[in-house]
Design a protein around this nucleic acid. Structure first.
Lengths: 113, 113
DNA sequence: TTTAAACATCGATGACTGTCAATGTTTGCA
DNA sequence: TGCAAACATTGACAGTCATCGATGTTTAAA
């Protein structure tokens, strides 16, 4: 998984079926999709949004996911670096929440109409 | 890449942020997204749609993609088995075209509103 | 200052993936 | 029938990824 730059999900390009995708734009969109294309990460996003105050810490996620703490931390890092989640640390806890509009940006790029 | 069943992209579940995703639904959606999460495959979809009659054969794609014929055939197979493209063989050519609504189904599952 | 809890990071490992060269298969044509 | 073109399939290989155990870091509390 690419973890180098913080990817901005917003409007890398025109919708897929609007005009032919250049190599660079295809790389960008593929990188965003790759961050989403994992069952654990999809459930993480879903659980974060559904959680109280629309935020969740690592300890809220490990048990329902059935994954170890390092693994969950890894997935959260991928989602943060891809621009889908933000991290805010309070006391010893790290709270993650969804970046408004991030999912919709990707959604827009896939839509046909 | 999982190539087992022909995945139906249509409505595996409620939108990501609507209710918490179960393990099975997360697997399904992740499988669809994985099929899309590759630069070459994104460009293939884009090029197929933009091509004359909204269909293209393998020979139309290899040169602009800069990939070998077996590699392009592989990507096309992934997209067909994921339910995004259909294949229709005429003479010695295999014409691929976008399944109507397939991209929009995924798009709908990602949207926040 | 010691202890414990929450989390991040590191290193390793097994599984998967994108790519290609080589080969098989089918179709149209001479 | 034989040949060539378009495409699929196979096998191999290098790179990437999800996961875990072990360890490091930070914070709060005793």
């Amino acid at each position: 998984m690419e973890l180098l730059p913080v990817i901005q999900v917003t409007a890398c390009c025109a919708p897929l079926t609007r005009e032919v995708l250049g190599a660079g734009a295809a790389d960008d969109l593929a990188r965003s999709l790759k961050a989403l294309a994992d069952p654990a990460r999809l459930r993480i996003i879903s659980m974060v949004v559904a959680h109280e105050n629309a935020e969740a810490c690592v300890c809220d996620l490990t048990a329902p996911l059935g994954l170890g703490q390092p693994t969950v931390s890894h997935h959260l890092k991928v989602l943060v670096e891809a621009g889908f989640l933000t991290r805010s640390k309070r006391a010893t806890w790290a709270y993650y929440s969804l970046v408004p509009g991030a999912l919709d940006s990707v959604s827009t790029l896939l839509v046909t109409a």
